[in-house]
Structures are given as structure tokens and as C-alpha cells.
């Protein structure tokens, strides 16, 4: 009995972690900054590749993963300054820029680094409950997802940078007039988003095939989670991930992965139809 219950929880945790980790970076870049970042998957790929390089260079895995996140973040900050900055007033053009960027990055990686990379191998270690075997690493991913949610919340709610960032996103002119250094805030916020995307890649690198287009597997889930969450990502991402993870886990278990996938998409349609402002809009309305 307990084993079965835990098995359900494990499945849910697995899908939840995937949704949260893949959406976290996008929640900041798309949810807060309004940039339709089609290159989100490429930041994830960048994190995974950097992690793998660092690991093969001899770093222990957790350090290598930190490297992955940092590298993606730094690249994000540079790209923001060079490519993204002129487009805050034209968010739809950012879609083209980032799409172009994603083409250049995936193909560039293919040409420079080859069509695939030797993997890392998932850290071994598992545990048994009843007749089921579980991978410890998947539980670490779940914990990481919770930490990321907490980190985003604290960063943007409790720190000075976070308050400045939210003020800038709401009214850049006003924030600047009050002494906030707008460009720096934009760059750092974008960097945080890119680093979170890189972290997602870093965490999933040991469990996946490393190819230049690997980011594509994350992109639909990440956009869907962020949008269902609604305009206020600090409030919306977690309940959105919970709702979608429950739907998907149930359908996966009952009807297999195909209907899990289709069901997830139809659930998105249904949720938006019922809550046209997403979860955060609904929660805000209930609170007021």
C-alpha cells in the first residue's frame, strides 16, 4: 500500500520537477520581462554542455553543474546587452531575434562540437520500497525544483535587487527616475533567467542524450507552464506545475505516454478557458 502510494508520489514528483525546472528560466525571461525567448532550449543545452565539459575536465558533478548554470548565466548577460536590449519596447521582435539565435546556436554547436557528446552517466544510487526500485537522483531533481521555486520567490520578493527588478519590469521609466540603474537590472534579470535555464540543463545532463537540439524537448512544457501560471510568475508557476503534473501523471499511468502528452496540452486549453488570466490572475482575484 505504502509502496504504491509512494510510487504515485514519485511519478508526480518526477513530472513536477521536469515542469518547474524547465519553466523556471522562462518564467523570469518571458513571464517577468515579456521576452518571448525562443532560444530558451538553447540556454538549457548550453548548461548541459558546460556541465559535461566541466565534469570530463575532472570537476565533481555538483560543481560541474554549478559551472553549467554560471556559464549559461554569463552568456545570457552578454547576449542581453548585445541582442536583446533594443527590443524591450518591441517584445514581438524579440521572438524573431531569439529564434534566429536558436538556429545559430544549435547549428553552430553541431558544426563545432559534433553531432553528439559522450554522456556523464546518472549518479548511481537507488532505493527500494516494496517491489519498486527508485532512482535517488530523481528525488534530488524534485528537491532542486522546490529549491528553485523558493529561490525565485525570495530573490524577487525579499532582496533589494528583486524589488528593483520588479519595479523596472512594471515601469522602467519611473524606476529609472527613482534611481534604479535600468540597464543593469535588465541584464542581471536576464542573466538570472538564463542561469536558471542552464541549471535545468545541468541537472538533466546526466540523464539525457547530449545533442545540439536537446533543448527542444523542454520548450513546449516550459512555455505551457509559464503561461498557465499567468502574469505573476512568483505566484503562478508552482500551482500551474502542480496542476499539469497531476494531469500528466494520471494520464501517463492510465493510458500511457501518448495520452499523457495530448492530455497535458488539452488540459492547458481547458485551464486557460476557465481561468483566462492563468492561475496567478485567479489567485489574485480570490485574494482581493
Amino acid at each position: 500500500m505504502f509502496a504504491d502510494l509512494f510510487a504515485y508520489f514519485y511519478q508526480f514528483a518526477d513530472v513536477f520537477a521536469f515542469l518547474v525546472l524547465s519553466a523556471a528560466g522562462l518564467a523570469v525571461i518571458f513571464g517577468m520581462m515579456g521576452i518571448i525567448n525562443m532560444a530558451h532550449g538553447e540556454f538549457i543545452m548550453c548548461g548541459a554542455y558546460a556541465t559535461t565539459f566541466a565534469y570530463h575536465a575532472g570537476l565533481p558533478l555538483p560543481l560541474a553543474q554549478a559551472c553549467g548554470a554560471i556559464v549559461a548565466g554569463v552568456i545570457g548577460i552578454i547576449l542581453e546587452a548585445v541582442l536583446i536590449r533594443p527590443f524591450y519596447s518591441r517584445p514581438l521582435d524579440s521572438l524573431l531575434i531569439t529564434w534566429g539565435l536558436s538556429l545559430v546556436v544549435t547549428q553552430g554547436t553541431l558544426i563545432v562540437l559534433g553531432s553528439s557528446m559522450p554522456g556523464i552517466g546518472t549518479p548511481s544510487g537507488g532505493f527500494h520500497i516494496g517491489e519498486y526500485g527508485f532512482s535517488t537522483y530523481r528525488m534530488i531533481l524534485f528537491a532542486a525544483a522546490l529549491c528553485v521555486l523558493g529561490f525565485i520567490y525570495l530573490l524577487f520578493k525579499r532582496t533589494r535587487f528583486g524589488v528593483h527588478a520588479r519595479a523596472t519590469m512594471q515601469n522602467a521609466g519611473m524606476a529609472q527616475a527613482l534611481g534604479v540603474r535600468r540597464n543593469r537590472i535588465y541584464a542581471l534579470t536576464f542573466g538570472v533567467g538564463a542561469a536558471l535555464a542552464g541549471l535545468c540543463g545541468a541537472l538533466y545532463a546526466p540523464t539525457m542524450t547530449l545533442i545540439p537540439t536537446m533543448g527542444a524537448t523542454f520548450i513546449v512544457e516550459s512555455f505551457v507552464t509559464v503561461v498557465v501560471g499567468g502574469a505573476n510568475v512568483l505566484l503562478g508557476t508552482a500551482p500551474a506545475a502542480v496542476a499539469l503534473a497531476i494531469t500528466r501523471t494520471a494520464l501517463n499511468g492510465l493510458y500511457g505516454q501518448v495520452f499523457g502528452q495530448i492530455g497535458l496540452l488539452l488540459a492547458v486549453v481547458l485551464i486557460i478557458r476557465v481561468l483566462p488570466e492563468g492561475f496567478s490572475g485567479w489567485l489574485a482575484k480570490r485574494a482581493s
Partner: peptide, 20 residues
Amino acid sequence: EEFIPLGVSQFAQTIQNIQN
């Protein structure tokens, strides 16, 4: 017997079904 959509990369459910 399980059919997996192309592009799916997460297999926790499948692994559990196999163990069952």
C-alpha cells in the same frame, strides 16, 4: 507494450510499469 511519442525524454512511469 508501451508506445512513446517521439521527443519524450522522461521515463519514470515506463520504468515503474516494467518493474510491475
